[in-house]
Design a protein around this nucleic acid. Structure first.
Lengths: 173, 173
DNA sequence: TTCCCTGTGCAACACTATAACATGCGAGTG
DNA sequence: CACTCGCATGTTATAGTGTTGCACAGGGAA
C-alpha cells in the first residue's frame, strides 16, 4: 500500500501547540537552508494558518493581521501567501478559496485533500496509487499530466461517528 | 479497465454544431422529463457554454448575454448557472472559476477533468477506478466520501504532439 | 377574482485577487 | 562613509467573482 498520509485527522485533544511549533521550526530551518527570508509578516501568516487544521481564507488572515499591524492590506496577505505557496509551506484549497499548512514542506508535492463538511478539518495525502491511476487514465487519452487538484469532501472520522465525550464541530485546535 | 470517458478531446475539425445541437436537445428532453423549465435565458447560457469545449467564465457569459439582453446582470447569469449545475447539465471547474458543459447529464456524477494548459480544452472522465482508489484511501483514515473535485492539468494530445497541418491553440470549436 | 409560485429585473454589496508605483531597509562594494 | 542594488513592504486603486434583498410579471390553482 503506497498510501502516504502527510497530515492525518487530529483528535480533538491533541497537543496543537506542538503542531504549530513544529511547523514554524521546520519552516525556519527550510528557509534558512534555501537562502530565502521568512520575514515577520510571512512567519506570522504561517502561524495564523497553523492556528487550526482547517483551511483559512485570505481575508480572515487580513482581519487578524490588521489587528496587530495597521498597515496590513490585501497585498500584504497575498504576498505572504504567494511566498508560502512557492516554498511549499502551505497549500491552496481551490474549492474553498482557502489555505492550509503543509505537513511535509520539505519535499515538493501536490496534496490530495480530505475535507470534512461538518467540522472543516482537512487531512492531506500524497498517495502514489492515486497519482498512478490518474496518470494512467489520462495517458489512455494521450494526455500528459503536469499537476493535479484533488479535493475530496465528506465526513471525517470524528464527525462520522462521534464517540461519547469527544468534542466535534471544530477543527480549531 | 473501468475508464469511462464522458467527453473526449475533440479534433480541431470535428463537427461542433453537432455537439451543441445534441447537448441542447438532450437538455430539453431531460428538463421536460423532470418537469423543470429550460427557460430562454437558461437555454441560451447553456448554448453559450457549449460554444466550445473549453471552460467559460461567468462574466464572459454575462458580457455575451448583455449584448443580446440589456437587462442581463450578474444574478441573471448565476441563477442560470445554478440551475444548470443543479440539473447536472454543466460542471464547475474549481481551479479556474469556470463552467463547462456536461456530456452525460442524464446520470448524476462528479466529473474528473483533464485540462489542457495550452489550448484550454477539457476532457471529462467518470472513472470508477479513480473513485475506488480515492474512496479506499480515504476509508483507511476513516473518512466517508461524499463528493470529489478532481482537476488534472497538463497537455492534451494535440498540443503535446501536434501533427503537421493540424490546428492547435484553440478549443473554440 | 385572488392567491401563490417561479422566474426575472434591478441596485447594492460582499468577497477574492491583482496592478502600479512609492518607500524602506539591509547587504555588499568602492 | 556614501552608493546602489535588490528585495520586502506600504499605499491606493481597481479587476474579477459571487450574493443579498426586494420588486415585479406571468401563469396556474382555488
Amino acid at each position: 500500500m503506497a498510501t502516504s498520509v502527510v497530515t492525518p485527522f487530529k483528535h480533538a485533544d491533541h497537543d496543537h501547540g506542538h503542531c504549530v511549533d513544529d511547523a514554524l521550526a521546520q519552516a525556519e530551518r527550510q528557509c534558512r537552508q534555501r537562502g530565502v527570508r521568512l520575514t515577520p509578516i510571512r512567519r506570522r501568516v504561517l502561524e495564523l494558518i497553523w492556528n487550526g487544521h482547517a483551511p483559512v481564507k485570505a481575508y480572515d488572515l487580513l482581519d487578524r493581521l490588521r489587528a496587530e499591524r495597521r498597515s496590513a492590506a490585501p497585498p500584504t496577505v497575498y504576498r505572504a501567501l504567494d511566498f508560502l505557496l512557492e516554498e511549499g509551506l502551505i497549500h491552496r484549497i481551490e474549492s474553498l478559496n482557502a489555505y492550509i499548512g503543509c505537513g511535509s514542506p520539505a519535499h515538493p508535492h501536490v496534496g490530495q485533500f480530505l475535507i470534512c463538511e461538518q467540522c472543516h478539518a482537512v487531512a492531506e495525502l500524497d498517495d502514489n496509487d492515486v497519482h498512478r491511476v490518474l496518470s494512467a487514465k489520462a495517458g489512455e487519452l494521450g494526455f500528459l499530466v503536469s499537476s493535479q487538484t484533488i479535493e475530496i469532501n465528506g465526513l471525517c472520522p470524528l464527525c462520522r461517528d462521534p464517540s461519547p465525550g469527544t468534542a466535534t464541530g471544530s477543527a480549531s485546535g
